[in-house]
Design a protein around this nucleic acid. Structure first.
Lengths: 220, 220
DNA sequence: AGCCCCGTGTCAGGCCCGTGTCAGCTTGGC
DNA sequence: GCCAAGCTGACACGGGCCTGACACGGGGCT
């Protein structure tokens, strides 16, 4: 999944990025609201993490504004001192909030929760041909065997599972799996598609390539 | 998608065209505002890339003018020195702007973003006679069978589907499928129409040829 | 620390499929 | 019947895609 982190504290930001990257997410980082605007203009995000105290303005106003044009889920990061009860934050359009300092595990959990709620309603287990895909557990079960997926394979499969039968271009897939400033070639996508195919073939799930356009996942 | 690039720097223009063509877009190139006017009168574009510094005038005035008559999404290309923040540019009616020199990947991303925001939301499924055409999936289903289409066939069918019952000349079709300077004979269109016909015949969809004029798609 | 191992992204080489052209044929208009 | 316009099977080319091998780096274990 692709995240936008809006946070001016460099240290905290880097820690968050490191942690979320471990989960295979792509994170872009904006230090100001202006920068956040730029990012939002260019890419599509699955989730935004927004600090409310920023050098160039109040995050709340920004939140209200973007809510009119974008439909990105938002988790607000607030300091404990800033009074902000749940109702207050949610009224502005946030999906959840978390008070600093927070535990990274908690942040991850809230991210997962919001994604589950706001994304295309995804059941915990997705039937894929003869197999069962568990996105939160990162496993694929088939014939009683449960095999773990690797990080990138997991994210890639999530994207495909969410877009049954749709053609996804390599560029789109790159956008979903990698952050903007990660200079990764499209060949990486080809490689990961190949690796995923090996795992899916037994289950009757296929990732067709549409030459010059992209890939499409289908199953019986 | 069909783009109009308004840019007097030949080298830059050619580089942009080369890059966007790789994404399967058709790009027409105008070196002056006058030329741009002519292109706009003749063809319909999905997106315009407009340099603001041109030999025969200021792009901003041009932008304001065209905005009254056209509804093409516009991305403005500016030199870094020319001050222009987002608000400024958006006030003129642009959908986005990018400062030169820019990264091609960024240009592509912005194009995609603008198209996503402004583009006509393609209906998920288009009924075509006894068949169902899924543009985003690139398939045609009929009698429970779902058959994939190839790149060019897909684009051609999209054009026909968007222009139900209209007669499309071979020149128009060439324009939609190929960029201007791609030297492709009209015979190519004949060939692709033939290939499409084979796939559509079972569904009762027909592409009539109107001798000396063009083609028209009809169905029961 | 040192070691190993696993996950990751790149690269080069080769395959093969989509693509556009051509030539010869058919069709339609006058 | 003649010519132009359109149809179509066959073909060659080029580049998009695949894949095995590799180098790199970070984590975890001893």
């Amino acid at each position: 999944m692709r995240f936008l982190l809006v946070e001016d504290n460099i240290e905290l930001a880097e820690a968050i990025i490191a942690r979320l990257s471990l989960d295979g997410h792509a994170v872009d980082h904006a230090k100001t609201l202006a920068a956040a605007d730029e990012w939002l203009a260019v890419a599509e995000y699955d989730l935004m993490l927004l600090d409310v105290m920023l050098p160039d303005g109040d995050g709340r106003a920004f939140l209200r504004k973007t809510r009119t044009t974008e439909r990105v889920p938002v988790i607000v990061l607030t300091a404990r001192s800033q009074v902000s009860d749940r109702v207050d934050t949610l009224d502005l359009g946030a999906d959840d909030y978390i008070t600093k300092p927070f535990d990274f595990a908690e942040l991850e959990a809230r991210c997962r929760a919001v994604l589950r709620r706001r994304g295309t309603p995804t059941p915990a287990l997705i039937p894929l041909g003869g197999a069962l895909f568990d996105p939160s557990g990162g496993t694929l079960s088939h014939d009683g065997e449960t095999k773990p997926l690797r990080n990138r394979e997991l994210r890639l499969l999530e994207v495909f599972a969410r877009n049954k039968g749709k053609i996804l271009s390599k560029t789109q897939l790159l956008d979903r799996l990698f952050s903007q400033d990660a200079e990764v070639s499209e060949n990486a996508i080809e490689v990961y598609v190949a690796r995923l195919r090996k795992r899916l073939s037994a289950a009757g799930v296929e990732i067709e390539t549409v030459r010059g356009v992209g890939y499409r996942m289908t199953w019986a």
